[in-house]
Design a protein around this nucleic acid. Structure first.
Lengths: 212, 212
DNA sequence: TAGACCACTGAACGGTGTTCAATTCCGCAC
DNA sequence: GTGCGGAATTGAACACCGTTCAGTGGTCTA
């Protein structure tokens, strides 16, 4: 009686087909121009059918974001090499490269403000946690080997590195660079500056000027 | 015959009213939920009327983005103080503060990907150029006073600083921070690390690993 | 006062996400 | 094989959206 199993498999297949169609469309034409009706046409179902697979359009993109996080996890997980500092560099740089290779996914994961549940469910993506853990461990190793000051907080350092690289990635993903500027060079410089800064230690206490 | 003048004034007033309504709506409810019809209702005109003031909805947001750049220009222009390095810090930090005070404007200016003309017309906003120039001058002064290595490129350094701060701002604007994390602390740390990195100089040549 | 002009409107077009009653399909029991 | 029950799928509709355009109404000019 493999009937139920087959049915389940078929249902899953349709669900995947919806995601595939949505991915194709939004990678090709961008997030904005994906509509339920276009997805439906692509998989040769009626628009209404989609709603028995995903409760809303946002949930489709939510699933694609999860897919993105999974891809990022794979992309960012690197085998430790002989040079701990170089490993840190490589992890950060692969994060940046991911933003270029999967621009639409990246935008969905980190830039989009209309799928807020991504933010709230941060903890839901277990592998994201693992990924962070792995990266933090890499940094910790670099700390232990003396590349960073011994009192450096690996987790905080990771956040700073990600934020910095994300800044460069976002600027070029959102096309906010002046004509003459080289996005890759900016990303490289930003990453290098941040690493160098973390290495040198943040000596001065920072007091933001709140007057004016 | 102040007739033409009066008519022009009236027309200008309506244009401003449209922008005011659009701003109110998108600051209150976010970019996504602003519609021509809602703006029209607010100013008690028919939706069609708006099209004799702005050729499209995007142009309204384009105008608001320009407004944002103007505000940022004002916000960021600081009087040079006794400490050149502190001035650099203050400029960068006020950039970050702007992102919190005018989140929706900031998103429009730097994060939104559906109003691409902002990116293309970068050069159009003369005051943005001036702002950059001013900030670069501040950095140059810090270089001249020995806070940064003498061969530092002020303009490149500015870009790096902006990218880094923008990264932290974007992460918290897009609500991509894990629950326990302090956005301000991240922004502070990122800025400090970047400044420290630029000060220490980027000694190592960076060769991104393109294998894998 | 006649006419020109122009701001403004109502209605429509084609699109969107979403819902729901109705239909069709399919495996199962008899 | 027939009929049944439940699930999958659909067509039509709802309430929106940005945008267009013929037509209207009021104001200024000659």
């Amino acid at each position: 009686m493999g009937v139920k199993e087959r049915q389940e498999r078929e249902k899953e297949a349709v669900g995947r087909a919806i995601l595939d169609a949505a991915r194709d469309l939004f990678v090709a034409e961008g997030y904005q121009h994906v509509s339920i009706r276009k997805i439906a046409e692509r998989i040769e179902y009626s628009p209404a059918a989609i709603y028995s697979y995903f409760p809303s359009k946002d949930d489709i993109f939510y699933a694609l974001a999860e897919e993105g996080f999974r891809m990022l996890s794979d992309r960012v997980r690197i085998a430790p090499g002989p040079d701990a500092l170089e490993d840190v560099r490589r992890v950060c740089w692969s994060f940046y490269e991911f933003s270029k290779e999967h621009a639409e996914h990246y935008a969905l994961m980190f830039l989009d403000r209309s799928v807020p549940r991504i933010s709230r469910d941060w903890g839901r993506f277990g592998f994201v946690h693992e990924m962070q853990q792995d990266a933090a461990l890499l940094i910790q190793r670099a700390i232990d080997e003396g590349f960073f000051p011994p009192r450096t907080d690996a987790r905080a350092a990771l956040l700073v590195l990600v934020a910095a690289v994300h800044g460069a990635a976002a600027m070029c993903l959102c096309d906010r660079m002046a004509p003459g500027e080289d996005p890759n060079a900016l990303a490289r410089d930003t990453l290098e500056a941040t690493i160098a800064g973390l290495r040198s230690g943040i000596t001065q206490t920072f007091r933001p000027d709140t007057t004016h």
